[in-house]
Simulated scan of single mutants.
Amino acid sequence: MYVGTLSFDILLGDVRSLKEKRSVVRPIVAELQRKYAVSAAEVGDQDVYRRTRIGLAVVSGDTEHLRDVLDRCERLVAARPEVELLSVRRRFHGEHDD
């Protein structure tokens, strides 16, 4: 079993309230979950209007499949015109990790 995680540090566009922020972040999280069957959530900067951190995790028995899903998720977020992807942190955990 292998687990892959991504953490996105995101700058939001023209957002002036937490309500507007939610209207941008929720559809991104929902699309990641729907398209790629990943576990995803807003995991940081919840009280800052123009920044957010989205985290996701994928479990797979195959490392190639895991890398493919993580690559697709990263491309999806990076392609969203309403956000600027500042950084991405990627981690892999395998059967032999303690």
Score class of each variant (00 low, 15 high):
37 A>I: 00
91 R>E: 15
70 L>I: 07
87 S>I: 03
18 L>N: 11
24 V>M: 08
31 E>H: 14
74 E>V: 02
17 S>Y: 12
83 V>A: 11
38 V>Q: 02
83 V>L: 10
68 D>L: 14
78 A>H: 06
58 V>F: 14
86 L>F: 01
42 E>P: 07
33 Q>R: 15
14 D>E: 15
24 V>N: 08
18 L>T: 09
19 K>L: 09
85 L>P: 01
11 L>V: 04
15 V>H: 01
24 V>W: 06
71 D>R: 15
46 Q>N: 10
72 R>Q: 15
28 I>V: 14
38 V>A: 04
38 V>E: 03
41 A>L: 01
95 E>P: 14
51 R>A: 09
15 V>Y: 00
10 I>C: 06
84 E>Y: 06
22 R>L: 10
36 Y>K: 08
65 H>W: 11
87 S>Q: 11
23 S>K: 14
88 V>Y: 03
64 E>R: 15
5 T>L: 03
50 R>T: 15
97 D>L: 06
27 P>E: 07
22 R>G: 08
52 T>P: 04
78 A>T: 09
4 G>F: 06
94 G>P: 01
86 L>S: 03
64 E>P: 00
47 D>C: 06
69 V>S: 08
10 I>E: 02
17 S>M: 11
56 L>Q: 07
76 L>M: 14
20 E>V: 13
28 I>E: 03
38 V>C: 05
46 Q>T: 09
30 A>C: 00
26 R>S: 12
44 G>N: 03
80 R>L: 03
79 A>N: 12
68 D>F: 14
3 V>R: 10
87 S>W: 02
88 V>S: 04
52 T>Q: 03
42 E>L: 02
7 S>M: 08
81 P>L: 14
